[in-house]
């Protein structure tokens, strides 16, 4: 009712929309890209597109859906584009394996705990988890490679993370307390 008497400007609604969704969209984009900076760019782009379409789209009703869909689309494009680059990164990583391992040793205690937690996973579960986490493979790629259904990959991944969470509960609590204070 208020809005009829004192209609908000499009900019105000847009600002509100940004406030409500920005951080969540960024986290979503991050899960898709695994890159904080790229995720920021994508979300910025999505909001610019929304602004350009503000006459066609009802910001209050459909703005949110539009943003999530646009973010996913942009991320998938970048992901495809990056595949080449990632391939390169893998080969670089492989040649510098020694150095990489060296860095790992610096944090031996935590590193050991994580290895132990991963060893606790059932073999099949571990194989799938490693493919996703270390080889950065998509669920569909893993399913095709192992000749299993995507659903199975999903279930095994969920199971793996659940076990990891339980195994590493003490380390995680510490980091969460820290993160809360780092914000």
């Amino acid at each position: 009712m208020n809005k009829l008497i004192n209609p908000q400007s499009a900019k105000d609604i847009y600002r509100q929309c940004f406030h409500d969704n920005f951080e969540r969209l960024h986290r979503y984009a991050f899960t898709l890209l695994q890159d904080n900076e790229e995720a920021r760019d994508v979300v910025q782009q999505a909001f610019i597109k929304l602004w350009q379409k503000r006459d066609e789209i009802n910001l209050e009703l459909a703005g949110r859906s539009y943003l999530y869909t646009t973010v996913q689309r942009l991320c998938i494009n970048i992901y495809r584009h990056n595949k080449v680059r990632r391939h390169y990164k893998d080969s670089v990583l492989a040649t510098h394996q020694e150095e990489y391992t060296d860095h790992q040793l610096e944090n031996r205690e935590i590193s050991n705990r994580i290895s132990a937690a991963m060893d606790a996973l059932p073999p099949k579960c571990r194989e799938i988890f490693c493919k996703s986490r270390f080889e950065e493979k998509k669920y569909a790629e893993i399913a095709a490679e192992l000749n299993i259904s995507v659903k199975t990959v999903e279930v095994q991944m969920g199971k793996a993370l659940k076990i990891m969470r339980e195994q590493l509960a003490d380390i995680i609590t510490i980091s969460i307390i820290l993160i809360a204070y780092f914000k």
Partner: peptide, 24 residues
């Protein structure tokens, strides 16, 4: 807690929430 378990693995990039004011 789940996100932490996911990120604890080496080589993983930790998620960092950007600053809303700056982004706006």
């Amino acid at each position: 807690r789940l996100q932490q378990s996911w990120q604890l693995i080496y080589g993983a990039i930790a998620y960092q929430a950007p600053k809303e004011d700056q982004e706006w």
